[in-house]
Write a protein that binds this DNA or RNA. Sequence first.
DNA 1: GTCCAGGGCCTAC
DNA 2: GTAGGCCATGGA
Length: 227
Amino acid sequence: MLMELHTKLFLEFGDPQWWPGDTPFEVCIGAILTQNTSWSNVERAISNLKERSLLSPSAMTSVQANVLSEAIRPSGYYNRKAARLRAFCAYLLERYEGDLEMTRDVPVLDLRNELLAIGGIGNETADSILCYALDRPVLVIDAYTFRALSRIFGSCPELPERGSRGSYGTMQGLLMGLLKGDACLYNRFHALLVLLGKERCRTAPCCIGCPVGPMCWYASSGTEGRA
DNA sequence: GTCCAGGGCCTAC
DNA sequence: GTAGGCCATGGA
């Protein structure tokens, strides 16, 4: 049934072609910068990095910390994020000579664990990097995912609440179990959920008028109470 | 002026 | 182990 939801969203919104970024490395940087921050602020920070020729692993690790912090200031938490960017770049240089292409043959779970071992990279950021920068079959679970699904399946007791213990893994396991697909499918499904939560469904508790129609679709599918 | 946004870490209990 | 605080900017 999640595939049905995916199909309905795809027909309504088309292919969102997410995530913005000229290169896989830029996508990784965006994933770190967007932590608890709106994308418009991240765009400013990335623009600054480009202007100052800092958008490379070697540049970020060699430049003075305060210069990097200043460049990403618009994204907020700039001191923390500067340290996180440098840690990620140091890992990339040390492990893969700064070349994301060299991660190609690394099993996805190994790669995920490597990313999680870097300070400042948690579940969401790691999965965003895996899915959107490295084309790995991983479904990103973020604030939009929780929001969109809670609106669609509002009364479903099996959906964990965002922030609750183990909610990330529970939600991810649930969705990936129901929606078995490749990187392209997970990429698009998550992007469509973001659009659903962002553009059409600002008004909680349910997206009345939304083309997908949370309750109308949910009820009409005859699967009330289950995700 | 207040709230919120595409998290994650640290610390006190 | 769990809850709460902290990091910080910019738009609505």
